[in-house]
Amino acid sequence: MTAPKLHPAQAKPRRRKTLHPEDVDKVGEALLTLTKELWVVKDRQMLLEHILKRHQIDVAAEIENLVPDAALEARLKIEREALIRKLMTDLVGES
């Protein structure tokens, strides 16, 4: 008896038409907004790790396995949704 085998899907699904050519300026704006947001976070993370190392605290493993509690998850959710809204606002533009 041979081992059970997988039967992965193979067909190509239909895709939506999304943005129009005239949306490209807004995509560029959104990308820059995203890059700025990402840099603010990376800057803060590097400062934090630098300060912690100065105090001889290694947090990398703890971060990797931390399950946010309800209060932290609520704060993360607010920040995450705000970030997405910023991008979405740029992409939609002024109507």
Binding site: R16, T18, L19, D23, K26, M88, L91, V92, G93, S95
Partner: peptide, 8 residues
């Protein structure tokens, strides 16, 4: 535009 972004 909101429709196009929703699709994106």
């Amino acid at each position: 535009p909101a429709w196009r972004v929703a699709n994106l």
